[in-house]
Structures are given as C-alpha cells and as structure tokens.
C-alpha cells in the first residue's frame, strides 16, 4: 500500500505545468534569463582566470644588460644571476641573437633587415622555480651591478588580477540576486498551480492523503520548471558565447586574449544550471505549498 507512485506524480506534475501554460512559459523564460545573466558573469570570470593563469605560466622574464657592457662582459654577470635562489636557469642572449629574434618576429622583416645589432642590448632570459616569488626575484636581479632594466609581464598580471576579482564579486552577487528572483518566479508559478485546487487538496487530506502525496506533483512541476529553464539557458548561453567570441576575435588582431572554447565549459555549465534549477524548483514549490498542508 505504501509504494511510491512515481507514474502518478510525473503525470500530475506535467498536467499541472500544462494546465497553466502561459505561467509555465513565463517562469521558464524569466528563470532562464536569470541563469544566462548569471552564467555570463561566471564565464567571464573563468576566462579572466584562464588568461591570468596563462600569463603566470610564462615564468620567464628578461633582464637587460647596461649598454656600456660588451657581450663578453655581460655574459660574465650570469654567475651572479645564477646564484639567486629562485632562478631555475638563465641564458645570455647576445645583441646579434636578439636582433635575429626580433627580425624573425616581425612579419615585414625588410624594415629591420639592415638595423645594426648595436642598437639593441644584451639580455638574460631568466626562468624562475616559484612564480609566486617573482617580484622578489626581480628585485634581486635588478640589484645586480650592470643590469639596467627588467621586462616582466607583472603589471599586466596585476591588472588582470584586479579585473578578475571584481568580476568574481559581481558574479557572486548576481548569483545570489538572481537565485532569489528565480525563487519568487517558481514560487508564483506553483502558487498558480495550486490556486483553484485548494478544494481538491482539502479533499485529498480528508480521505487520508499523506503530505508527501499531496506535495509530490507540485515538486515534480517545480523540477520540470527548473530543468526546463536550465536547458533553455544552456542553449542561449551557447549562442551568446559564440557571438562574443567572434566579436573578441575580430577586434583583437593580436591574440592577446585567449578564450576558452565553449565545448570545454558546457558540461560544468550544464551541471551548474541544472543544480540551481533543481534546487530553486524544489524549494520554491515546497515552500509555496506548505500552507496548503496544514489541514
């Protein structure tokens, strides 16, 4: 007698969602929009994080040797640099090599072909062991007599960190605000589902329905709304992301910004949307029908 009547709950849940189609449509659309707004900020934060990591992964910086040093004298400084604790390896690049690299990087090399190597400085390419101590290591290298200038991506990295932090905070606020909004939407949809059925619910209670039995169809309806929104949101998010990706690729000729492919994000995104949809759907319906179950 106490078996779980799964078919009945599913049927009633679908019936409920279908019987007030417009509200179902509105609830799914609004909640999906919330998810997309939320998702956009989260994806932005993830992309910033990704770029930041890429930037940090280049655990290499350049230390330029003073102009007055010859290549031989410059190379001698290597011993001092190698003695610094966090330096994993170093390599001296002569003026000639630097020029060759430079010309190689520029597409129209005829412009620089007859540039004298002497306009460039000799330099060390230095790799560190621990990227987090990079600022320390840089100042130690700078202290070496004969080192004129350091070139590291540190400033860019700092800018990125700030941007990333701001985005994460906005994303979190958005998640909270929009979860609350979605919750009210679902709650209203379920309220509509129960309106006009108070009599029916009272009859169910009168003939001895358990609260669980009365509750389940509405919970199923909440779940349907939540999952429906999650699916719609994933599709829309995919479209938005593709458009943005194209825009970024068009405007940044230099591939400075590295965008994560949507395929790599779709699974965690779906899990995220799905669980938020489920939780909001279930809680929204549970809390809404609580007042009908007091009889």
């Amino acid at each position: 007698m106490r078996r779980f009547n799964f078919g009945y709950y599913i049927k009633e849940g679908f019936h409920g969602a279908g019987s007030h189609g417009f509200m179902t449509f509105a609830a799914i659309t609004i909640m999906a929009s919330c998810l997309v707004i939320m998702g956009s900020f989260v994806l932005l934060a993830m992309n910033l994080e990704h770029n930041l990591n890429a930037l940090m992964a280049e655990n290499e910086f350049l230390a330029y040797v003073d102009d007055s040093y010859t290549d031989e004298e410059g190379a001698q400084l290597g011993a001092q640099i190698g003695a610094i604790e966090n330096v994993a390896s170093y390599r001296y690049i002569t003026r000639e090599e630097a020029l060759a690299d430079y010309v190689g990087e520029v597409e129209d090399d005829s412009l620089y072909a007859d540039l004298p190597a002497s306009v460039l400085r000799g330099r060390f390419s230095i790799q560190v062991t621990d990227i987090s101590q990079l600022p320390d290591t840089i100042s130690q290298v700078r202290a070496v007599e004969g080192i004129a200038k350091i070139s590291a991506a540190l400033d860019v990295a700092n800018g990125f960190v700030t941007l990333r932090n701001v985005t994460v905070v906005i994303a979190l606020i958005m998640v909270v605000v929009l979860v609350v909004v979605s919750f009210f939407i679902i709650s209203n949809a379920i309220k509509l589902a129960t309106s006009g059925r108070e009599g029916e619910i009272a009859i169910m209670k009168m003939v001895g329905a358990t609260n669980a039995f009365v509750r389940w169809p509405f919970v199923v309806e909440g779940i349907l709304l939540g999952l429906g929104s999650a699916i719609l949101a994933t599709l829309v998010q995919w479209g938005v992301y593709q458009l943005l990706m194209q825009a970024v690729n068009v405007y940044s000729h230099v591939q400075l910004i590295n965008i994560i492919h949507f395929e790599d994000l779709v699974l965690p995104l779906m899990v995220c949307f799905g669980s938020i949809g489920l939780i909001v759907g279930v809680l929204g319906s549970l809390i809404t029908i609580r007042k009908f179950l007091r009889v």
């Binding site: 007698m1 009547n5 029916e200 009272a202 169910m204 003939v207 039995f213």
Partner: peptide, 29 residues
C-alpha cells in the same frame, strides 16, 4: 469516511473519477 453538507466533490472528475481519486490518494492498487 467523512461526508459534508456541501458534498465537496471534484467538479472536473466524473463520479467514477472522484471515487478513483479517493482510492489513489491512499495508494490502493
């Protein structure tokens, strides 16, 4: 079994449907 002055039937279910509903509610096979 409880009976009221105002009948309290479910309007959009047939006579049979009303009885069936009452039985489903308590999980009858």
């Amino acid at each position: 079994g409880i009976v009221f002055q105002d009948f309290r039937l479910i309007e959009n279910r047939t006579v049979r449907g009303n009885l069936e509903f009452a039985m489903r509610v308590v999980g009858s096979p």
